[in-house]
Design a protein around this nucleic acid. Structure first.
Length: 568
RNA sequence: CGGAGCGUAGCACAGCCUGGUUAGUGCGCCUGUUUUGGGAACAGGAGGUCGAGUGUUCGAAUCACUCCGCUCCGACCA
């Protein structure tokens, strides 16, 4: 390809719409353009990267035995009602009406579709295991699209769905996908590490997210430096907070006046001086229209993902002040669970042995002290509800660290939720009907594209890993006179590289060298061959690795071999 | 959905507070001349419903109201 014959509109300045570096570089390098918020056009160079990532994904899916299909983006709402997600996912579902007023959904994911197909097509254990995958455009009515392709309303995702006869077999399918993901990200030239992920309401231990470390990531990961533990903070656990919880107290519960106390900090300060770790924080939520209480140690943060598991539903929200007053008879600031009946109470496990605690009296302006959880609270379920903090010890005794990352993939053992809901079943060896055990495996292709940029760049622009670069080599011709020696050499090397199967772009534009160098660095080609009269006089071309800079004189006759060697 | 900011040429922005010639600057674009190894110089030129609508006014990019869009923070994130 000649640069003058393609379309790579580079920008010297970053458009104001782009906040994070990778988004700016996507625009500046001429890879994408925005149509509207969260909706992007991929320009020729961007499409080439996209296709290269997709090709790697397809190869690894096929290697793992998955079968490519292509399911409709437009889906009937009925299957979503059947799975229960029509309500659950309501705020991200794109709904459209056809000309007859019939409602359709633009699919954010395809569990319902693939399971509907399986319900008809999979009848016998002899057909299992089987894994269908697709590379498809997904739609999600994001509350707030942002960061370019990172959180878009329309994006490309690879999703795979495995069907197995038994739980054990499903774990094998899961492991195959897990291994495939490791290979995919490795081949994309990016460090993506698997972390244990929240499995939500369905429970179980088989879910991993693949994370690319980045300051701008929207996820937080807790890990230990020895590499033995890493988990999304939504899921992460520890041995507990560093400050111990009081557990010795025999005194009777005692009410005391606390005018003006509204927060944990108020009670920790003058004149009460109750340390936060000796307080019980009382949180009230409305879960599926009913109030529930969550108790945390005063200095702990509740973890929403863990709350969802405790409540058995992801549909909950913090209660409004009036709702709280109606349920407990007091306003936030004086809430407690002692003596509460008829409202489910979930407490963080840290509180199980707690004694001598202080908490609200459910009477505005009053608290109670000497609360002994085991003695004074009845009907409490103890669960891990807290968010871990940096420095706490992992189960193996290693200190936890926390860092931000971009989630680019998610593998998940689903169980039989969808197969049961949508009536998929097969006959086992004994002729008995069984629901296939499913797994689902998502990989954000467009998000990965941007995450690679976020991960691999420098002051001059993108630094593409060779496997996904729009072109692997850029020949920068410094004199584009059609029958001049420079273009003759450049054209010949261009042809030889293309013949050797190496994607090469020849920058034949009639521009000053500075612009062409800057552009090649901005777009980020891994290898550049500078060809100009100056070095040609010595019989050389200039060889530059994007990741290292500098320039190395290489004889014309060896240029192709040199490029081949470095890309091998 | 709550909070904040922004919307003027393809891009980045000034002008707005304090209303008044023909709306400006830089980059980019077109033509010409000179340049030619790290985002050239000079000369000429094209390009604007000043986000949209309504209102105030003799007069609105500028003031007011409504709407739309974009960005950020929060909430939310199958």
């Amino acid at each position: 390809m000649r640069w003058s014959e393609t379309f790579i509109p580079t920008l010297k300045e970053a458009p104001a719409e782009a906040e994070i570096l990778s988004h700016q570089l996507l625009l500046r390098a001429g890879l994408v353009r925005k149509l509207a918020g969260g909706l992007y056009t991929f320009l020729p160079a961007g499409v080439r990267v996209l296709h290269k990532i997709e090709a790697i994904v397809r190869e690894e899916m096929e290697r793992a035995g998955a079968l490519e299909v292509l399911m409709p983006a437009v889906q009937p709402p009925e299957i979503w009602q059947a799975s229960g997600r029509y309500e659950q996912a309501a705020d991200v579902l794109f709904k459209v009406a056809d000309s007859k007023g019939r409602e359709w959904l633009l699919g954010p994911t395809h569990e319902e579709v693939v399971t509907s197909m399986a319900a008809v097509e999979l009848n016998s254990y002899r057909q299992l295991p089987i894994n269908f995958y697709q590379v498809q455009t997904k739609f999600r009515d994001e509350i707030r699209p942002r960061f370019g392709l990172m959180r878009a309303r329309e994006f490309i995702m690879k999703d795979a769905y495995s069907f197995d006869a038994t739980d054990e077999a499903a774990l094998i399918s899961y492991q195959k996908m897990y291994d495939a993901y490791v290979r995919i990200f490795e081949r994309c030239g990016v460090q993506a590490f698997p972390v244990e992920a929240d499995t939500g309401v369905m429970g179980g231990n088989h879910s991993h997210e693949f994370m690319i470390p980045a300051q701008t990531g929207e996820s937080e990961v807790a890990y230990t430096e020895d590499g033995n533990y890493s988990a999304n903070v939504e899921k992460a656990g520890s041995q507990g907070p560093l400050a111990a919880t009081p557990n010795q107290c025999t005194g009777a519960v005692e009410e005391f006046a606390t005018p003006d106390v509204k927060t944990i900090e108020d009670l920790a300060g003058e004149p009460y001086e109750v340390p936060a770790e000796a307080q019980i924080k009382t949180l009230v939520f409305i879960a599926e229209d009913k109030p529930v209480i969550a108790l945390m140690r005063g200095d702990d943060e509740a973890n929403e993902a863990k709350l969802a598991v405790a409540f058995g539903t992801a549909i909950f929200r913090p209660a409004e002040a009036e709702e709280i007053h109606a349920a407990l008879g007091a306003h936030p600031g004086s809430l407690g669970a002692v003596g509460v009946n008829g409202i489910p109470v979930y407490a963080d496990s840290q509180l199980k042995q707690a004694a001598g605690m202080t908490t609200g009296a459910n009477k505005d302006g009053f608290h109670i002290r000497n609360v002994n959880v085991a003695r004074d609270l009845s009907q409490v379920q103890f669960l891990d509800l807290r968010t871990v903090r940096e420095g706490e010890l992992s189960a193996e005794g290693q200190p936890l660290k926390i860092r931000r990352a971009i989630e680019v993939g998610h593998v998940f053992k689903l169980g039989t939720k969808y197969s049961e809901a949508l009536g998929a079943s097969f006959l086992d060896e004994d002729g008995k009907a069984q629901a296939p055990v499913m797994g689902c495996y998502g990989l954000g292709v467009t998000r990965t594209l941007q995450a690679i940029i976020e991960y691999s760049n420098d002051d001059n622009g993108i630094v593409w890993p060779a496997a996904v670069s729009p072109w692997q080599v850029c020949i920068t011709a410094l004199d584009v006179e059609a029958d001049g020696e420079v273009m003759q050499v450049a054209t010949q090397i261009h042809e030889e590289l293309n013949t050797a199967g190496i994607d090469t772009i020849l920058d034949d534009r009639e521009l000053r060298p500075g612009i062409k160098f800057k552009d090649s660095e901005l777009v980020g080609f891994p290898v550049r061959l500078g060809i100009g009269a100056r070095s040609l006089k010595e019989g050389n071309v200039e060889f530059t690795l994007r990741s290292e800079g500098g320039r190395e004189a290489v004889p014309v006759s060896e240029a192709v071999a040199r490029v081949k060697a470095v890309l091998a």
